[in-house]
Every structure is written in structure tokens, then in C-alpha cells.
Amino acid sequence: MTTLLSVSDLRLSFGGLLAIDGLTFSVNEAEVVSVIGPNGAGKTSAFNCVTGFYRPTAGQIMLRGRSLRGLRPSAVAALGVARTFQNLRLFGELSVLDNVRAGAHLWLRQNVLDALLHTPRYRRSERECTEQAHHWLDFVGLRGDRYGEARHLPYGEQRRVEIARALARRPDLLLLDEPAAGLNHGEKTELLDLIRRIQALGVAIVLIEHDMGLVMEVSERVVVLNFGKEIADGRPEDVRRDPAVIEAYLGSDTHA
């Protein structure tokens, strides 16, 4: 079991506020790791540091031995990291297919001249791009209209499209930021199945999620954050019994 992502002693501060205070965790190849914690614990900030949207104040982020620190998000994506956003960030006015084609952007081999002259290479790459987009929409089980604008899809379907877009990047590491938020029970069950199928492709997944049922069901390891600090890291069944975790979630009388 080899390590894919390792984050060590990550720190991030906004002015005087310490959003992440010495976070250390690692993700192995094809492993599902959940990051949980109360609101404001620094989970999404950690995602943003890994994907290059935030510049961490200190610490190391290594993907297969390559440092991700200081890279812009597109460079991190080029190294095989894809993500979804906590609040859906689809290209609303573009077609569903075009949204997923965005994920295939880095796989397309065509230049401006190919596009202007419509060379066979252009046509081949466009065809493959569309096939890929359909493939990933099939994979996530999209039922709605894939030729129309993405914003017209129901919320749950938009979530699927966002995951399809990230998968079309064909990442080694997929970061899902609250994928179950706003989903109904049936959709959550399908999400669970989808996460397992993604894992079966050999993709490692880091999951931020508040739905404990989903987290306990799907994760191999759980990392618990509170106030920017890591308070637990272990197997789900161990973490749920950890006194520090229980205290973080339920509060404790001793400090009251």
C-alpha cells in the first residue's frame, strides 16, 4: 500500500486567525479517507490548500513525492487531483456535456491550427471528448437531459454532473466536498454506491462529509478536525469511540 498524498504540519492563517493549525494526514492509493469535524474546523480550507486555491502558511503537501505547495490549481489538477465544490460550481449556462468535457480538457490533443482547419486530429479528439463525457455521465448514472443547460437539472443531478466532471479529469485523487449535502435518502444510497465504484477504478478519495452514516459506511480511515487541529485519525469504528471526538461534537461539561 503506497502513499499517494501526504500532508504534514499544514498551517494556514488568515491574518490573526489560525484556520489550520498543524494538520498531518496521508492518503494511500485507492483509499477512501473522510475528513470530518464541526463547522469551521478547517476542512474546506485544507482542501483549498491541497488543490492550490489557498497558499498555506507552512507545512508540506506531497503527491507521490512531488510538492504541491505554491502550484496554481490548474497545475495541481494536471498532476492528477480533481475536486468538487461544497456549493455546486457547475458551468450553469453550458450544456451538461460541455461541463463534463471540462474534465477532459487536459486529455485533448489538439492545437489552434487543428481547430481552424478541422484536421482529422481535431475531429478525433472532439469525438473522443464527447464519448468520454457520455461515459462518465453514464458512470454517475445521470438520468436528466445531458444536451441542455446544466442549470436546468435538479439539484441532485447537478451533484452527479459535478462528480462526472471531476472523474473526466481521470484523477488519481478525488476530493469530494460534502457530496451528500442536500441529497435525499435514495440519492445518498446511490452516492455510496458511486463512491465505491470510483474507488474500484483505483482512485483515492478524500471526503468531507457531515452525514456520519455515509462516512462510517464508506471510509477506510477518518480524520477528525476541530479548530484547525487534528484530534483523531483512525478506523471509523475507533474514531467514533474516541473521547476527544465525542467531546468535539457533543461538547463537554468540564469546560462549561
Binding site: F53, A77, A82, F85, F91, L94, H105, L106
Partner: peptide, 15 residues
């Protein structure tokens, strides 16, 4: 168009 619609999401997809 990805840039026009959402710069951050485009960047996250490697654009």
C-alpha cells in the same frame, strides 16, 4: 467559456 462561467471551477479542472 469555462473561464466566463466560473474561473475557479475551470482552474480546478486544469484550465
Amino acid at each position: 467559456r469555462f473561464v466566463r462561467e466560473d474561473e475557479d471551477a475551470a482552474e480546478a479542472m486544469g484550465v
